[in-house]
Amino acid sequence: MKTSDLKNDRKESVLSLIGLKPEPSSGEWPVFTSAITAGFPSPADDYIENRIDLNEHLVQHKEATFFLRVQGDSMTGLGILNNDLLVVDRSLPIEDGNIVIAAIDGEFTVKQLVHSQKGYMLKAANPAYQDIIVGPEDDLEVWGVVRWAIHKLWP
């Protein structure tokens, strides 16, 4: 393919992206207005499926889903690293063992919610950090359940 072809290709794909096809300039209108089929019809026509859309897979309840950014490394043991993108679904029921976003001291924190005999605990997944025991007087607000942690591997 020549460089000029490549350029034209790109130009056309940009135009089709925004829903515009390049218009032929006046004097170049074709004589026939209906298209003429030429060549062999694609054998794949009947097998076309929609391409995978990550939005559909990562987000189940659009209205209740929010994204948060991780800061810190207290959850590395569960594969949640500094700077990861969290997909948080507020519509999910909160269950024992869930990774949750909790509001503590006016900030959001990401921890594992664990129920024990002593009550609820927000568990870190890194031995360097302490767990937070939630006492009966403490006002624990679980903001949402973390459904996915997305980790960037290549800039």
């Binding site: 929010f66 994204f67 948060l68 950014r69 991780v70 800061q71 810190g72 490394d73 207290s74 959850m75 949640i80 500094n82 993108l85 969290l86 976003i101 900030e107 959001f108 924190t109 990401v110 921890k111 870190a124 950090y129």
Partner: peptide, 8 residues
């Protein structure tokens, strides 16, 4: 501009 979840 998304909110920050602290892992500390």
């Amino acid at each position: 501009e998304i909110p920050v979840a602290y892992a500390v």
